[in-house]
Amino acid sequence: MTTNPAILHLLLTSRLSVTAMNWLTTALDRIAADHTTIRALFPTVGRHCGREGLLGAPDAHETSELHRWSVDDAARTLMLAALPLSRAELGTEVAALYRYGDAAEKRGVLRGLGSLDSTEELDERALPLVHDGLRTNDTRIITAAMAAYGARRLDQAAYRQGVLKCVFLGIPLSDIDGLDARGDAELVRMLTDYARERRAAGRDVPADVWRVVDPNELSRET
């Protein structure tokens, strides 16, 4: 899936106040002129642009890939896209923003990686950030780690473990990128085992897991 900066910009224009949009426009200009300005601007995005959902009421937009985005995620993604850097320099700046970011900034970086990846500028340089995010127990950061960049760049074993971790933490499968392209027989086997373990313990299996797992498989010997 793509996270096209032009679409994010359009959505932000409709969601943000004039004051907030002016602040963001100025911020993007400053970053484009001097990449170091992003370091002070990045932590303040929530204060200037707010933190609500990018699409408004979440229920109405379950089918959109952007339904889990907040306006600060989108603003931070535009800031990353505005960086006048490439390849190794870009990777270093993005890694520092992640390393020194609070939870919202880390989430913004992980989401924003998707739009940087469309130009192949980043390559796999930001993959350690995705692994770091997946090691946390913060569902917001884990979900962002499994967004476009992570879903595209993680190796198959790490991708499957990421999906399973999301299921364990109650993150809906619809919040994870790349399932159609990357779901494989081994992932189905892991989710089937998970469902069997839940059943054995007398616990519910999340409804979305049943869309992947065949209930008849549960009664078979393993």
């Binding site: 609070d102 939870a103 880390k106 946390t136 127990n137 913060d138 569902t139 917001r140």
Partner: peptide, 10 residues
């Protein structure tokens, strides 16, 4: 400090 602006608020 990262915990105070990350994990603990979560």
């Amino acid at each position: 400090f990262d915990g105070l602006v990350g994990w603990e608020p979560f």
